[in-house]
Design a binder for these strands. Structure first.
Length: 449
RNA sequence: UCCGCAGUAGCUCAGCCGGUUAGAGCAUCUGACUGUUAAUCAGAGGGUCGCUGGUUCAAGUCCGGCCUGCGGAGCCA
């Protein structure tokens, strides 16, 4: 029994048929038919139709019901009735009505709107049933992630968000002044710090916001997004891939178990999600390149005069969206591509002892065009090789002194990966655009609301 | 940053080859209706045609510049 305030919610109404309840919420839609007023009430847990019949209630209550507008806040008292005419089998026979506030000119009508308008009203758009469904799926995916790690011996260790330097030295970072210590940067990954905490606690994960100042403008990029990054001592690349598969399977199956109504609102084909069972597909980068060339997937490259030419895909080039899409078109569940050319990968990734031209890196691509949801690797654990890579990339040796220390005092093989929360939610929910799967998206041309 | 597209009522859009008073549906307001689900019916109000300069007897319409946004690429989760 909770000691804080509790009241009836709409999702629980089927258990309360015949009882009188008071519901607190907002008017989703109204329509009238003479002496009948139909009020669709939403309370965050669901929507129920409330029927106010003039002969059953006072004149004043009926007039109040008649005056209600979209998104007015109300408490409605009435009897729960099973009714076949109702959309979800239950409706409320109104006996009492308290108006908290009459909303005037709510901008988002039940009709169609353009994306620009909706984004400007994001703070209100979240109230609509489709957006609410996405946010509930997002909450479920985040819970599944935490449950999975907490239940498998991992400890949550938060990495700092303000950092003194670029983690990977490649992406553009947001910078800010940090007292007398010069510039600080918003973290684009918690991984390097997770490596340190993994050496302290064995298996850890960080789960927090990350920031990329790149001017990406696609339906799968945000400038601020949430990422979960596990880091495991004594895990090699294969252990890392096994963990990634287990985790993604768990997340998808958890969403299926707990979010059926939401997936239905989204019109999601759940059979596609049911198919997400281990083992996933795996192929090496080299095999993927062979597959691309065997299937005649060409690489488009701009010439200097602006024209485009097509080439066979050269070994050593990184995959772009067209290559990933082509590869995934043959699969109905995720695929891990591993052992990429080390030249296109970050300095901290360990090179394959059996072939130094490739790094022990892996990406997991999701099906149905969802693209890359995971990037990970086994980390370079040899002090001299890591130092060499830092120098080769022209990174500050001094700034990475603490990171090199991890290779100096009890270095062990270790691995980890990062999973993008929004990309995962986009895939599972079937949302068209990543801006719909975070309450307040931060994008190159939008920071309001 | 590059390529492409758009901006007309609160919203979604139409507006022809430049032409006389700027159009529709929805939303809003008023009225009718005991079963609506994007109700229906009758009526009403609602416009700096993104901004700016130009061409023209005449510009929402043609041309230039700017602003804002959208779609995609690259980068990546």
């Amino acid at each position: 029994m909770s000691r804080y305030k509790s009241y009836h919610t709409i999702e629980n109404l089927p258990n309360l048929i015949g009882q009188e309840v008071t519901l607190n919420g907002w008017v989703y839609d109204t329509t009238s038919k003479g002496k009948l007023q139909f009020i669709k009430l939403r309370d965050g847990s669901g929507i129920v139709q409330c029927v106010a019949f003039k002969q059953n209630i006072s004149e004043e209550t009926f007039e109040t019901a008649r005056s209600l507008t979209q998104e007015s806040s109300v408490s409605i008292t009435g009897t729960v009735k099973a009714d076949e005419r109702a959309e979800n089998g239950v409706e409320i026979d109104v006996t009492g009505l308290k108006l908290w506030q009459l909303a005037k000119d709510y901008p988002i009508t039940p009709k169609e709107h353009g994306i620009e308008f909706l984004m400007e009203h994001r703070h209100l758009w979240l109230r609509s049933s489709r957006q609410r469904a996405i946010m509930r799926i997002r909450a479920a995916v985040a819970k599944a992630i935490r449950d999975f790690f907490d239940g498998n011996g991992f400890r949550l260790q938060d990495s700092p968000i303000l950092t003194p330097n670029a983690c990977e030295g490649t992406s553009t970072l947001f910078s800010t002044e940090y007292f007398d210590l010069g510039n600080a940067y918003l973290s684009q990954s918690g991984q390097l710090y997770a490596e340190a905490t993994a050496m302290a606690l064995g298996r850890v994960y960080t789960f927090g916001p990350t920031f990329r100042a790149e001017k990406s403008k696609t339906r799968r990029h945000l400038t601020e997004f949430w990422m979960v990054e596990p880091e495991m001592a004594f895990f090699d690349l294969n252990d890392d891939m096994d963990l990634a598969e287990d985790m993604v399977e768990y997340i998808v199956q958890y969403a299926l178990k707990t979010c059926q109504p939401e997936l239905k609102i989204m019109g999601r084909d759940v059979s596609k999600l049911e198919a997400v069972r281990r083992p996933f597909h795996r192929m090496s980068y080299t095999e993927a390149v062979e597959w691309l060339n065997k299937n005649n997937v060409k690489l488009n490259k701009k010439n200097q005069d602006g024209t485009e030419s097509q080439y066979d895909f050269p070994w050593g080039e990184d995959f772009g969206a067209p290559q990933e899409e082509a590869i995934m078109s043959q699969f109905d569940k995720p695929c891990i591509i591993h052992r990429y050319p080390s030249e296109v990968k970050a300095f901290y990734m360990k090179r394959d002892p059996e072939n130094p031209k490739v790094a022990l890196a892996m990406d997991m691509l999701a099906p149905e065009g969802a693209g890359e949801i995971i990037g990970g690797s086994q980390r370079e654990d040899n002090y001299d090789l890591l130092l060499e890579r830092i120098r080769h990339e022209n990174l500050s040796e001094e700034a990475f002194q603490w990171y090199l220390d991890l290779r100096k005092y009890g270095s062990v093989p270790h691995s980890g990966f990062g999973l993008g929360l929004e990309r995962t939610v986009k895939w599972i929910s079937g949302a068209e655009h990543i801006r719909e799967v975070i309450p307040f998206p931060r994008m190159i041309y939008r920071i309001v609301p």
